[in-house]
């Protein structure tokens, strides 16, 4: 080996090492950024679990509202007796009950007696998400099945990118479409009492979820070994029988993963639900009543909230709940289901 060759080789190693280090650094940086965001969200929500940290703040608010006694009494005399009951309940929250105050059934954060009940928001989030999946699931899976098993090559060539293009649609555009057009159409068609409701929001949300379910299901169907379908067809099964009874069952873990990822997307989506669901914090299971979701609540209220206030911590606590739910679901989709998919085809 001549000395000059050795130098170029050495140079190459240096360049390679630098490039590798930079890439590694970037990867760690993005991971660190995610961890720091997480830490931040958890830290801001933490005071809720140490009500004593609010003690000073609370007592001052409480004193202020006490000097306002006369005005509140006026309001009570005009209202019903139930208002008085809520008052007592939330007075407990205000004197520093912290996280236990979030189990209530009323979301009235801007009030003389703020009530931070998360139940209507949690139910709202699940309601809208389930409605979205109810539409997006069958549609996404069936269209993936159509594209992989039945569509002629030419049709497949543009159908697949077209559906995937829907994933790049800005959610604010979908939300605006739902707010102005979809809501009116649904109201006239179904004779709904409320223009903006969970059904409208869920339907609009399904537009954002369909591409996810479609893409992942399609991948899973393509990953099914050709030998399986060929064997089925060779045994005399029709195209339809092969697709539904051979390919689809073989791809079940992937389909499940697509549904879970779709769920995560729908659960965290903010703009569409903020615009299309009416944002009323009702404690109800009726799908055609307005709902307020957790994500929309953060989106609408975070901008004006008093920093360090209970309301502020509660909003971060909602963020923590959202994170835990989506993390669990996406995690399940990633690790468990993918693993099973690999074992099924990898070993076999």
């Amino acid at each position: 080996m001549s000395p000059s060759e050795d130098i170029t080789h050495h140079r190459f190693r240096v360049v390679e090492w630098t490039g590798e280090t930079i890439i590694r650094l970037v990867a760690f940086l993005s991971l660190a950024a995610i961890l720091l965001i997480l830490l931040f969200v958890f830290r801001e929500a933490a005071p809720l679990f140490h009500p004593s940290e609010f003690a000073a703040l609370d007592s001052s608010i409480y004193q202020a509202s006490e000097t306002y006694g006369e005005i509140e009494d006026d309001a009570l005399s005009l209202g019903t007796s139930s208002t008085a009951g809520q008052g007592i309940y939330s007075a407990e929250v205000m004197t520093g009950d912290g996280v236990s105050g979030t189990f209530g059934s009323q979301w009235q954060p801007v009030s003389d007696r703020p009530k931070y009940g998360l139940a209507p928001l949690i139910i709202g989030s699940f309601k809208v998400t389930l409605i979205a999946l109810l539409f997006a699931g069958p549609l996404g899976i069936l269209s993936a099945l159509f594209v992989t098993a039945f569509a002629p090559k030419a049709l497949k060539g543009w159908l697949k990118p077209a559906v995937e293009l829907l994933a790049g649609f800005p959610s604010v555009v979908i939300g605006f479409f739902a707010l102005t057009i979809l809501a009116s159409v649904l109201q006239t068609l179904l004779g709904l009492q409320f223009r903006l409701n969970a059904l409208t929001g869920g339907l609009a949300l399904s537009l954002a979820v369909i591409p996810i379910i479609f893409t992942i299901t399609e991948d899973a169907l393509n990953a099914v070994p050709k030998s399986l379908s060929e064997a089925s067809l060779a045994l005399g099964a029709s195209k339809w029988q092969t697709a539904v009874f051979v390919a689809l069952p073989a791809a079940t873990p992937g389909v499940l993963a697509s549904l879970l990822l779709g769920f995560g997307r729908a659960f965290g989506e903010t703009m569409i639900v903020l615009m299309a669901t009416g944002n009323a914090a009702l404690l109800s299971l009726n799908p055609v009543e307005p709902v307020r979701t957790m994500s929309a609540t953060i989106g609408a209220e975070m901008a004006e909230v008093v920093f360090g206030d209970i309301h502020y911590s509660v909003l971060f606590f909602i963020g923590v709940i959202l994170f835990i739910v989506t993390f669990t679901i996406n995690g399940a989709a990633e690790f468990y289901v993918r693993q099973r998919l690999r074992r099924r085809f990898g070993g076999g």
Binding site: I71, Q106, V110, S111, D112, N279, A280, L283
Partner: peptide, 21 residues
Amino acid sequence: VYFKDNVLQSADFAPALQSLP
């Protein structure tokens, strides 16, 4: 807040209120 303070005299809005941006 203005509406709540002046018209509702600080009472809470009904939960059915649909809040829009």
